[in-house]
Simulated scan of single mutants.
Amino acid sequence: MTTITVIGGGSWATAIIKILSENNVQIRWWLRDRTAVEHIRKHHYNPDYLRDVRLSPRKVKTFTKITDALNGAEYVILAIPAAFVQEPLSSLTAKHFEGKRLISAIKGMIPEKHCLVTDWLEERFEVPISQIAVIAGPCHAEEVALEKQSYLTIASTNEACAAHFADLMKCHFVMARPLVDLYGVEYAAVMKNIVALACGISHGLGYGDNFQAVLVSNAMQEIKRFVDAVDPRPRDLSASAYLGDLLVTAYSQFSRNRTFGNMIGRGYSVQSAQMEMKMIAEGYYAVNSIFEMNKKYKVDMPITEATYKILYERENPSTEIGKLKLRLQ
């Protein structure tokens, strides 16, 4: 039986545990909140996220001490927002991850370093990149909770690692397939959140479906230009791991990035929108990182630039989207 540690207590961590529980695995779940841990042990559901998901006490064991949760694990899944992943892992060393495969379920970048989570893990804990993978969509936690048909891509430079973990993530309502384009999938997952912010902002301003269709199609071109500059290699960006993930994040009612952007378009300040949302919009931090990275690559990225100016330079959303619409084709 495969033993898997899941680090994080949010909706995506809960959804991943639901999927894994469909298979013959043992799950060791670390949550920061001791009250939530005690509640899960007693009532077998997460009191804060996806409360309808019932958790098997036979397969799922909860921990408040992260080193205990890591004991005996073959895989370690990180499901904490990128902006906050460093602190709970700060007490750990490379030795804690020896012989383990790390799976990032994080669709963001380390803000202070402007780097991918996988690159940070490789550097910080000396884990070979061949032992690291990422989980990509298109897949929202809320639909997993409802057991609606969903699709996942497990990307790694190590095809065997990706294939084995993809098998663990398959069940009657989830299809999962391996892919070797680790960096392309991870950068696309980061950038689709930026696009969802832009879609939400434009919707909040009153733009309709026609404009959003053009915005998303241009965004796919923007993602291709950037990913090809950062990690040039053959890849089909029309595949579900890229285009599918972009579409669901740009259009879905469950997209927290679209929701955050919609609030900005309707006149909320960044601080007000962050306070009202109970979940993290990864795109807010990602747009700053991608903008800073692009100072080196100098890729034409009008959607990223407009979103950055609105969120970080406090430019008027109506003015910036008005400028952006003239640059779209």
Rank of each mutant, 00 (worst) to 15 (best):
L89M: 10
I77H: 08
L102K: 03
P128I: 12
Y75Q: 01
P88L: 05
I106D: 09
E74C: 10
C139P: 03
A133C: 10
E143H: 08
V76M: 03
V85D: 07
L78N: 05
L92R: 02
D119P: 00
E123F: 05
S104A: 12
E74A: 12
A133H: 01
G108N: 08
R124C: 07
R124W: 10
R101C: 14
Y75S: 01
P81A: 05
Q86R: 15
K107Y: 01
I80K: 00
V117L: 13
I103T: 06
A83C: 07
G137K: 00
H140S: 00
V117D: 10
L152M: 11
C115D: 12
K100F: 06
E126H: 12
A82T: 01
K100T: 07
L89R: 04
K148I: 15
V85I: 15
C115Q: 15
C139Q: 04
I129H: 10
S130T: 15
P128M: 12
V117Q: 07
L152G: 06
V144I: 15
H140F: 10
A145D: 07
D119C: 01
F97M: 08
F84I: 09
Q131S: 13
S90Y: 02
D119S: 11
L78F: 11
L152C: 06
A136K: 12
A105Y: 01
S150I: 00
I106M: 14
L121G: 05
L121H: 07
K148L: 15
A136I: 12
S90D: 12
E143M: 04
G99N: 09
K113C: 02
S91F: 02
S104T: 11
E87K: 15
G99Q: 03
P88S: 03
K148N: 13
I129E: 13
H140W: 01
R124T: 15
E123V: 05
G99K: 00
T93S: 15
A82W: 03
H140G: 03
A79N: 10
W120M: 06
P81E: 08
P111L: 00
I103L: 06
V134A: 09
F97C: 02
V144W: 06
V85H: 10
H140P: 04
L89Q: 02
I103R: 05
F97A: 05
E87N: 14
H140T: 03
A105H: 01
E143W: 06
S130K: 14
P111H: 02
E126A: 12
V144D: 09
